[in-house]
Structures are given as C-alpha cells and as structure tokens.
Design a protein around this nucleic acid. Sequence first.
DNA 1: AAAGTTGTAACATTGTTTGTTTCAACTTTC
DNA 2: GAAAGTTGAAACAAACAATGTTACAACTTT
Lengths: 145, 145
Amino acid sequence: MQITSKFTAAVHILTCIEVFGGEMRVTSDFLSGSTGVNAVIVRNVLGQLREAGIVETRQGSGGAHLAKPTSEITLYDVYRAVECTDDTGLFRFHENPNSKCPVGRNIHKVMDGRLEAAQAALENELKLTTLAEVVADTKKIIEEE
Amino acid sequence: MQITSKFTAAVHILTCIEVFGGEMRVTSDFLSGSTGVNAVIVRNVLGQLREAGIVETRQGSGGAHLAKPTSEITLYDVYRAVECTDDTGLFRFHENPNSKCPVGRNIHKVMDGRLEAAQAALENELKLTTLAEVVADTKKIIEEE
DNA sequence: AAAGTTGTAACATTGTTTGTTTCAACTTTC
DNA sequence: GAAAGTTGAAACAAACAATGTTACAACTTT
C-alpha cells in the first residue's frame, strides 16, 4: 500500500511551473515530458491543483501558472489537492467487526482517535515544507551540477 | 489510497487474544467471527505476527498466544509486521522522471528526505501506543457498557 | 483412528491506479 | 474566419493490489 504517485508528480509539476514559467509556456505536454507521466494524467492533476486554488490554467492559450506565492504552498496543500486520502482517512478499517463480540463492537472507539493522531502527525510534517523550499533546493542543485 | 485493513484487523486480533485468551482457545475461526475477516486472512495475519515475534501459534492444537507482554507491543510493531509499506516506503514516486530535464533528474534528491521525514512522523506516533493501552481502553469500555 | 486446527498454495473477485483514445471547447495567430 | 495548438473531460483499457475462497497436507489432541 502506497500513497499515489500523483502526489510526487504534482510537486514535480509545480516545481517545473516555477522554474520554467519565466522563460517558456509550461504546457501539459511539456510537463508530461519532464515527469514521464501521461499528459492526460498531468491535466487531471493540474485540474485538482486548480480546484484547490494552487494553479491557474486556461483552455486554448495553454500554460499553467501558480495562483499564489511558492511560500504559501505547502506539501500538505498539494497532498490534499490530489486527494491522497478519501473522507475516511489514511487508515482503512476491516469492514464488518462483529457487534456481538465485546471487542468487535468497541474496536472503533478505541482505535479511531489513535489512527487520526498518526495521520495528523504525517500531515503536520508535510505542512512544514513549502514549495519555496523545494524550488530553492532544486535550483541550488542545478547550479552545482 | 489507504493503509491495508490488515493493520486494524491485526490490532483487533491481538486485543481478542489478550481479552479472551484466559478463558478459551482463541482460534482463527473465532477471530474470523469477531473481526468479520476471512479465516484464511486471519491465519495469514497471524503468520505475519508470528514471524515478527508478536504471537505464537501451533498447528493442530490451535489457539494463538502473545509472545511477549502487551506493554512491549506497540502499534508500530504491528504496522511493520503486516507490511503496510514495502521497502520503497509509504510514498510512491512517479517512475520515469526525465533525466534530461534539470527538475526531472533532481526531484528525487529534493523530495526523498522530506518524504522519509513525513513517514517517520507517522511511525513515531504509532510507537507511542502499546497494545496494553488498547486492551485497557477496551476492557474499560466493556465494563461501562 | 477421528476430529479439529494451522499453514499454504492456487485461484477468483473486487477495487484502485495509471494509461489511452477521443473529441468538444477554447485561444491565439495568420 | 480558418488553422494550429491547447485544455477539460468522458469513456474505456490495462495493470496492479487487496481481499475472499477453495482445497488440502501437516499437525495435535482425544
């Protein structure tokens, strides 16, 4: 079980938009070339990032742009945007615990809070990194190459 | 994307072994009845818990037992035992970033450490809860019913 | 020997993820 | 306003993963 690669792809996409956006039009085709991800998937991801208010895209003219400063976009924002977890959270419960069993009918009460805490720990860590840092690190490595 | 339900099932199973182990033989059939999980899956989970040194089982005689005190079994131990994540970690990378693109060939270097930190945050949170606490909470709720 | 249990393999089913094809709607440029 | 390039989106396909099912050998106890 792993978190969808759309998440790392989305970070990659946003980094490209910031790094290359000044000098060229960053289209889904270009992003597909850089990420190795199918262009339609790229457009899906861009659509989710757009709904989350992270990027702006336009039909026809082409080229994606960031909708806000890189310092205001965290990895958590991206994680949420691509819906790495659904409404029921990161952990999945076995579906039919037996309500006739004392353990079965109470396991949810005992575990739910702890699972939410673990999920929150992950998410809080993702909130600590902004796209600005990712872009800065990337540019630094490129310069040193 | 969600973490396999084998994890919550495993916690459920271990709780049952501790709660009911004193008064009866806790077989895979009984555990299947309490969890609502297929008996063969239960045996698979028990097999993984056995390999991890968490439970003891024996062919023929039947009935699972804990291999160490509940205070020495954390949710993280269970999480590891059922292999919620493979060797490549919780996050999955898109597979073919383009090495000809400056961003594509460096995105791993920039992201890997941060993804590992996020994963570690989740795992560290899971280390904070022991099976002893889960069992104690469960017994308390049962008594109050 | 009989009954019940575990361990395991093989297969089936279901659901999810990713990729592909297709095309309408849109924008820019000529 | 026609042509070219692009996005948005739907429908479908392929690959993969998770869970369930069937079957049976090996084992233990009675």
